[in-house]
Design a protein around this nucleic acid. Sequence first.
DNA 1: CTGAAAGCGCTTACAG
DNA 2: CTGAAAGCGCTTACAG
Lengths: 358, 358
Amino acid sequence: MSRQKPKLARIADSLGVSTATVSNALSGKGRVSPELAERIRATAAELGYVPSVAGRALRTGRSGVLGLVLADISNPLFPKLAQAIENSAAKAGYGILIADSHGDVAAQTQAIERLIERGVDGMIVVPRRGTWVTGASCPVAVIDSPSTPGNTVAADHWSGGQGLGLHLASLGHKHVLLLGNSTASNVQNDRLGGVRAGLGNAKVEAVWIEKLEAKAGQGCSLGLEAAVARGVTAIAAISDLVALRALTELQRAGIAVPEDVSVTGFDDLIWSSVVTPGLTTMRMDVVTIADIAIAAVLEAIARPPSAETRRGDGDTVIASQPKVPMELVLRQSTGPAKTSVFRKDSKSTNLTVGERIQ
Amino acid sequence: MSRQKPKLARIADSLGVSTATVSNALSGKGRVSPELAERIRATAAELGYVPSVAGRALRTGRSGVLGLVLADISNPLFPKLAQAIENSAAKAGYGILIADSHGDVAAQTQAIERLIERGVDGMIVVPRRGTWVTGASCPVAVIDSPSTPGNTVAADHWSGGQGLGLHLASLGHKHVLLLGNSTASNVQNDRLGGVRAGLGNAKVEAVWIEKLEAKAGQGCSLGLEAAVARGVTAIAAISDLVALRALTELQRAGIAVPEDVSVTGFDDLIWSSVVTPGLTTMRMDVVTIADIAIAAVLEAIARPPSAETRRGDGDTVIASQPKVPMELVLRQSTGPAKTSVFRKDSKSTNLTVGERIQ
DNA sequence: CTGAAAGCGCTTACAG
DNA sequence: CTGAAAGCGCTTACAG
């Protein structure tokens, strides 16, 4: 049963034709008579012929492999995204080589170099915050935020945020706490800006965890108990991760979600549905994003390298910026604004509280 | 600035030597005079020479690429593991091609085939539960559980469980609930068996979520409130994911962790430290596991294909089974067993119920 | 419609 | 210690 790995020549010999004809028949490119082509395909299948990628790569100058650079590999979105990218690439006959860059900017550049050395035909980069993608001498599609220059495709974070804001507003929430990590992130600004817009003229406070922790230390309290005491009835977190932190902090303090306060996240991570209460969140359509990104690089690869924006030594960054809609996932962590709070508010005349009278 | 991609021949020409000598000098294999070798390396560096992987692969029959098959890519451990594998492979000059197999057994086989077609020199497989790794015509290292036949390397799940059990026992827990998903998983049996052993003669109950959900539906209550009422003072979950579900279910029911009941997990996922209270858990040393797995495939690749266990068409499954110790991560979700329970226990003499009277 | 031939860039025996 | 030559498996102009 153990036969040698069949090459093109073997199948050519066994049919008494030339390797050129076999190659043409198999690729469907050359002009080969339908009958011969069919016989060739049959024997190829029968012999279990698998073309040598090395031979093909050497001849064509294309490896059939794309690189995937996830700047922040510990990003919990990584599994889904990697899966989507791999699927999309596989459909087009491409393989995905991964490169990790520890979240370090220098390492990101190194990772890109390593991929180039491996001969990738193009790459998909999900860059680190505020990072420039440079030095790639091949087409590069960037997945980040629509607000990022050079971005190729991204979820419409702003509209997603708006959707969440509208949802909270429709539940009667008039005083909302926004929970972000860093003001330096385009994605975060987009998301939270959208939430604000969706909330209309509700009272909005924002807490930036990065700043908070700079003072109070890693893993410090988010001050949620006080916020709720202040009249906050909903908390919109920048991510499910942050939402989870908020949820458990609230629960530990004996504050009921969603009865006392509603909580929302972003991303719809695996565990977002297993926690109690399940997390209302805004999901990215990673499959569509992956498809668009892959299509963009493949197109750039196919096209003569000139139509794109070329930089420096010849790297091609594809910028087209479609925004992929996000999807609202309703679970139990959001509910109507606490009415008792409104009543108490309405008695108050204090300026900061006044706008919450219902 | 835009020079052509330099080939071996170019650097040979520019020095007036043969390509053979350049190749030998650069690879360090051939016998080349130190001075010449040095000059060659210098010009190569200066010219920015990067060897063509295609040319090399075609000639040597080796691609320099390893496949990574994660059966369950949505596994939250994936990012860390992929990162560790990629790093370890990169150190040895290998690239990592990923293949996703949707958790489907047939898809896993397909994924393996696709990698073979891409010419990988070997692969690392983290198989799906109860799955056989077959059809790979190259060395394969399997990361699963020490109890899995064909396993190459794994965390010592049993000892890890034992560590957790000992920890809980030392805190005075005499009645513990084990939370598992599936009885069919080697990893889960190892882990929970270890916990039991570490717990000594404490009373132990086990709940299998898979069975529970088969009856009560996806996302049903785990019945934790009743368990605590029964006298359970600690809950050992099979994973952080399950522990999180338990934690939030408890908190939602107004049961304080760890005051009323302690909770432990396995894996130390990203969010395990951000929840309140932080989750006490048992961490796998993915870096060591990755190193061992990579070393094993590379060794098998280097060695003439005969010393291994060869199956069917010639796939080489490497079985050596080192167990990598796990590390206990202490956080706030575990504490002393509720003392009120102890007092009542000591009064009781009833075998099954006595120790749980509250 | 089919075939002979060249060549992608490298490495490896083999001579010298 | 160094070089000439062959060849890995494929594809692509170019003839016929």
